[in-house]
Every structure is written in structure tokens, then in C-alpha cells.
Simulated assay, not measured.
Amino acid sequence: MDNFMTHIVSITILLFLLITFLQSGIDKLVDWKGNLDWLKGHFAETFMGKMVPFLLATILIVEMITAICCITGIYHLFVDDNTYFGVLAMFLACLTLLMLLFGQRVAKDYQGALTITCYFIVAIFGLYVITA
């Protein structure tokens, strides 16, 4: 229980990121065609338009790896006070969100970019907390 209290902020942020990326990854797996169709339209007028299937698969893989690292990070914070996977999860979350932000900016979806920024603030704060 001491490890839980020591890392309560990091664990809570890892849970937030786990929910965010696991749900997003599952949604992409369950509704691949719907996501692909929507994103093709979203990026149709950009240089990324023809790369959408590859980019969607890349984001899916990174989101699922991030979710797995979140689970592993929470486990290791509880069990052995080890922050390695927690740091890795939060760093991957930041990278994933930066990739998504780049896409939204390219597509000139500034409202979508703003939403991603809110998630990024949580992830970067978590990275700060777990490494401080």
C-alpha cells in the first residue's frame, strides 16, 4: 500500500492514459472501415491523403503499445516501486498525441488539435510527475 500512496498521482494519470488509448485502439479495431473512411475524407486535401491506411495502422499499433505499457507501469509501481514502464508509457502517450496533433494541424482541424492539446497536458504533466 505504501507504493500506491507514493505513486498515486502517476497511477491515476496512467489509468487516464490507459482508458484513453485502449478505448481508442479498440475502436479502431472494431470499426476499422468507418475510421478509415472518415479519415480519408478528413485528409483528402492534404499530402497525407494517400497514406491514411498506413498512418491509421501506425497510430493503432502505438496506441496499443502505450496501453500495454500503462498496464505494466501501474503493476510495477504497485509491486516493486519501479517507474521504468510508467515513464515509457507516458513518453509514448506524448509521442502518440504529438503525431495526432500533427495530423489535425495538417488537416486544419484546429478544434481537434485543441482537444488533443488537453490530453497532451495531462500526459506531459504525468511524465513530469513520474520523473521528478
Rank of each mutant, 00 (worst) to 15 (best):
L56F: 03
L88M: 07
L97P: 05
K108W: 10
M48W: 10
M99H: 09
E63S: 05
Y84W: 09
V106M: 13
N82M: 01
H76P: 03
A57N: 07
T46C: 03
T96K: 04
L101G: 14
C69W: 14
F85Y: 04
M51P: 01
I68L: 14
T96N: 15
F78P: 02
A89W: 03
R105E: 13
C69D: 14
P53H: 01
C70E: 08
F91I: 13
F54Y: 04
L77M: 10
D81Y: 02
K50W: 04
V79S: 08
T96P: 04
L95F: 14
Y75E: 00
I59T: 09
E63Q: 12
K108E: 15
L56G: 03
G103N: 01
I71F: 08
C94R: 03
T96G: 11
L55Q: 01
L97G: 08
T83Q: 14
I74L: 13
L88D: 02
A67R: 05
Q104L: 14
G73V: 01
M90I: 11
V62Y: 11
L95Y: 11
K50C: 06
T96L: 15
I65L: 14
I61D: 06
M64Q: 10
I65N: 04
M99C: 13
T46S: 07
A67C: 09
I61H: 07
F85C: 00
F91Y: 08
I59G: 04
V52T: 01
I59Y: 07
L101A: 15
K108G: 10
D81W: 01
V106Y: 08
K50Y: 04
V62D: 13
I59Q: 05
F85M: 00
L77I: 00
A89Y: 03
K50H: 07
I65A: 11
D81I: 03
T96F: 11
M90G: 10
C94H: 05
L56S: 04
D80Y: 02
N82H: 02
G49M: 01
L60E: 07
Y84K: 03
T66E: 08
D81G: 07
P53Q: 02
L98I: 15
V52P: 00
T72S: 12
T72V: 15
N82Y: 00
F54Q: 08
V52E: 00
L55Y: 01
C94L: 10
A57G: 10
L101V: 15
Q104D: 14
M99W: 09
I65S: 08
